[in-house]
Design a protein around this nucleic acid. Sequence first.
DNA 1: GCAGGTTCTGACCGATCGGTCAATTAGCGT
DNA 2: ACGCTAATTGACCGATCGGTCAGAACCTGC
Lengths: 200, 200
Amino acid sequence: MPTDAIPTIRVRAADELKHVALEQFARVGFAASSLQHIADHAGYSKSSVLYHYASKEALLEAAIEPAVAEFESVLEDFLAERGSGRRRLLVERVVDVLLEHREAVHVFLIQGPSLDLPIIHRANAAVRRLAAAIAEERESVAEQVRFGVALGGAAFLLTAGRSFADEHPLPDDDELREVLHSVLAELLTPADGCRRNTDD
Amino acid sequence: MPTDAIPTIRVRAADELKHVALEQFARVGFAASSLQHIADHAGYSKSSVLYHYASKEALLEAAIEPAVAEFESVLEDFLAERGSGRRRLLVERVVDVLLEHREAVHVFLIQGPSLDLPIIHRANAAVRRLAAAIAEERESVAEQVRFGVALGGAAFLLTAGRSFADEHPLPDDDELREVLHSVLAELLTPADGCRRNTDD
DNA sequence: GCAGGTTCTGACCGATCGGTCAATTAGCGT
DNA sequence: ACGCTAATTGACCGATCGGTCAGAACCTGC
């Protein structure tokens, strides 16, 4: 075997393909992304893609696994934590995951329910656990909807909704994170020193 | 021609196919929905589908056009209107469209950017006009994000997010609409008699 | 230059895709 | 009963799908 300590060029093709594939998966969907298109767009042949990745599904797994793992980590911390600031902290960390892995999250959050793959099941299980945890801390329906809108709104804004903002682009990630943190925190604290109409 | 005033059975097959197709499009995506699967699921042959609809794309158009038209109508009213309650009214009407046409909205809102079809272009243009209108009423970035989270959150909750709530199902549509109206109205009125930290 | 491994590719496979077409069946007016 | 039209279907087409395989090209240590 060659010098396995310097796999710089070894790894570049695989990473390049993974990156191109993830971009395709997020933009046009997994089913609509053909290995031929991915290979063409990356400057390789279809056979090369299947050399680096055993199958189209393996390519998807390699592309989104880090994002799934990080989301799971955020979820575990949330479930283990205890205190008044749990939810706000969760939302902030979810926003960070979204900003860092928006393409991958777009894949397993939007197309997730339709794909029957192990890595997708992992991701869906995590999302479901989060949904169940929120639902089981049984509070008013309004509270759950508030939470769902906050998380779903952030997810939509940073993944699918981005496609519609080409004319008036969104601000850079740093500003976006700050604004999202404050808006979502505000959304999740319905009675933080001020009163609203308590309709529930 | 037969009695064209009693097309009850004439129209049923086409409507049935349209309904099944829409359900498939929303659940697994347009690209992943084959005419064969749609036909099997509806109890017809693939040829029958292509008899009632000239092509797979025509089937999609027939399935989502009413939703697109209604969304356009809501948007037109919003653009023509003037007054302080515009935004809240828009959000309420968008929620109604989402509740009534959630599968169709799921298709053109989530998979929209990836499909290259006239009806999808119409829908995307409408969504883009809405996004541009919000961005051009240039206020703070926080205001725009608040709006995006509200609309995107409602859209996500009622379309893609629904897949994850199987364990703890969402309430029925009537209650959901009421709760969404109040939560989103609250989200869109950042200074409605109470003060927040004005970070912008 | 040679050997051995890695990387890359074209040819090819069976399956399925969207779509066409001719033929059959069913329903209604006369 | 007949004839016309709408409705439905199976056979078939070219294209593309994901995937296999044998070999060419490339790099490296000797």
